[in-house]
Nucleic acid binder design. Structure first.
Lengths: 218, 218, 218, 218
DNA sequence: GATGAATGAGCCTTCATTCAT
DNA sequence: AATGAATGAAGGCTCATTCAT
């Protein structure tokens, strides 16, 4: 009766909720989590501040949702690029997949530094910190899969993947995202090349000639 | 007389300023930059909030000064451990010095996570971000010196030290300070060993047997 | 047909309205008027917040209706216990009826403190305050009837029943409902006995031996 | 140096704090605790809202202070009227002192109903509720002292003073403060007379001829 | 120079009420 | 008649900054 809801309505709810998260995503990408106040997010979504509370119980939940969306997109892109979790991935040598991972991650990070920094480093809500853990674990698992594939295929000798994988994730985050040294900015290409090679060494692969993009680089 | 007076005054100014920065350092080490409000710093220094503005034009400047002090101490300790900038450093192989750097840095970071996290990651004032750049450059230069010493002594083949050095710094920061994966926490010793080895590889050194503490570890 | 429809509609209206008030009653009994927000009441009644405004012009009116219902039930129970307004009441001595009133009131209040407190004391809407007046008048009239019956039967000498009756009501409310003095809590039985006796004196009856429950205690 | 504080300053602090509490007192007396918001109190004290937090840690503390002041004045007045805690009190018969208590309490309550109601009944902050307990205990102790003096002097036979005393306090509060029955308002004098007599009976004193004011009635 | 009280903008959150559907 | 999303005015609280003394 009236409203014929649960279809149109539910869709609307999702759209609104999505709009709020999208607005938050934009703000975080531009200015970091510190700028993502309830009022600002609501305003950018074209909605009043009170309305936010129809969709999220509190700021922590909104922040977490924003983080989830932003980080999820990043992680999915990287995973797609290396065939994470697929059978098909084994058709490509592990070393080449690590190379792809570094390049996809790096290219995106260099393009959107504020966002990358917010996702990886910015101190924020408890909600964000909780999600961050999940997100980092996701990256670490992705790297770990590649490394253990490498071990299995014989191209890599390594123990303590539990320490090596996060170290690689860390090196990536740090090297790509942190504002690099002032002075003549290196061209992105050179940065990518060097760090891809460094990660190969870090992982323990033998020297590697980058193959040109053989996979989807997102 | 006038001069004298000015001198005394100047000394007093310095002492006060120093007391404020020291108080801030303590607070940041205990609770991060988020807790270092003007009122709290002034209070811990035994001074009124208004007085802070006699010594620093605004909060940004105070935060920057606090950062400088805290980060400076860390950097100096690491540099002392590897003989940065001294003639004497050349008596020790580069690879061994890199090992020392990793271990000193890591040991301090693991001991004082809040401070380390604040210095490396915590979102903060513009002032802090600016200083952070300087600080990271300091580390990078320290690593770079070791690497180029290695090249000179023939133990290392590497170009693009400008990219390699920050990658090493980044890997260190990330791997030591971020909350590691949930699950069984590795013992600090194992962490240090593994990361030291990984950094050797990252740098491009051949495999290395850690030598027992041959240098001052601060 | 038209009439029928109207009747059905009217019945429906009443049912809805009643459901809202009942929901409010529950909430007030559990958590007081402060918890009886429009949204909460509507939700518990299985109705949307907007719908409330179809039945009540504003929150004040809803609160008043809730109060009316809750207080009405209490008052009716007490009145039934003392035969208020019936011919039959005169078969029981006034003093014994006052005893019954005190015990019924007290027992219910001790059992449901939150509700009792909400009805008697909780600061609330203008609407509630207005109804509270009616409610208290109801109690006062009940006591007054007993007292004047007592005068008529010769067991009591009193003028100014208009002042005596509310004083008795007040003593009841206060003594039973307010958190009693800290320290060893008296057992409910003792409290009931003592206050029943005190009310006898307050009313002006001679000493009275409580008779065992001679009336319906609801 | 500068400010020569701790004398002038401390005095000023006290004055301001006092001004805030006084402003709160006024508001509560006029409109109850519900109206005593931080902003409103600050405004009436001629101060900004933020300033309140210089003097009170949070709203609970401010409310408690307001309550303390208002209730303290009332209690002190009543106690002075009955010689509470003094040796001199024993010169006056207990029954007469109870009479004085009722009249002083009642007269003040009838003069300032909103305040009395706020102090005795209004649901409010945790801070207020906590203080209210103390305040009620104060009244109860005052009544209890009179009653036990009466027992000692032989004019009264009573056990369970622990229940009788609060019942008297309750009766007073209720009968004087609650809006009495609508209709022709009784003259205050008659109300006082009747309730004073009722309280004598409630306490268990024999009939008593009111003596004309023999004590300070505040 | 030092003080520290005062300020006021800004943050998160709640809730009675309205209105297009 | 019913819906329930949206509103916007409060409310409590924090903190960098100013200024009379």
């Amino acid at each position: 009766m009236a409203y014929r809801s649960t279809e149109r309505t539910e869709q609307h709810r999702l759209a609104r909720s999505e709009a709020l998260v999208a607005a938050g995503h934009e703000i975080v990408a531009e200015q970091g989590f510190g700028a993502a106040t309830i009022a600002r997010v609501a305003d950018r979504a074209g909605v009043s501040a009170g309305t936010v509370y129809t969709y999220f119980p509190d700021k922590t939940a909104l922040s977490a949702a924003i983080f989830d969306r932003a980080a999820g997109i990043e992680l999915d892109t990287v995973r797609a690029a290396v065939g994470y979790g697929t059978e098909a991935r084994l058709a490509t040598p592990a070393q080449q997949r690590l190379d792809a991972l570094v390049r996809v991650f790096g290219a995106r990070a260099l393009r959107g530094r504020t966002l990358a920094s917010a996702l990886l480093f910015e101190a924020a809500d408890v909600g964000v910190e909780r999600e961050r853990l999940v997100f980092r674990r996701g990256y670490t698992e992705t790297v770990a899969e590649i490394l253990s594939d490498g071990v299995r295929e014989g191209s890599l000798v390594a123990d303590r993947l539990d320490l090596l994988a996060p170290a690689i994730v860390g090196a990536l985050g740090e090297a790509f995202i942190r504002p690099l040294m002032p002075g003549p900015a290196s061209e992105p290409e050179a940065v990518l090349d060097t760090l891809a090679a460094a990660c190969q060494r870090l992982a323990g692969f033998a020297t590697f000639e980058p193959p040109g993009a053989g996979m989807n680089l997102g």
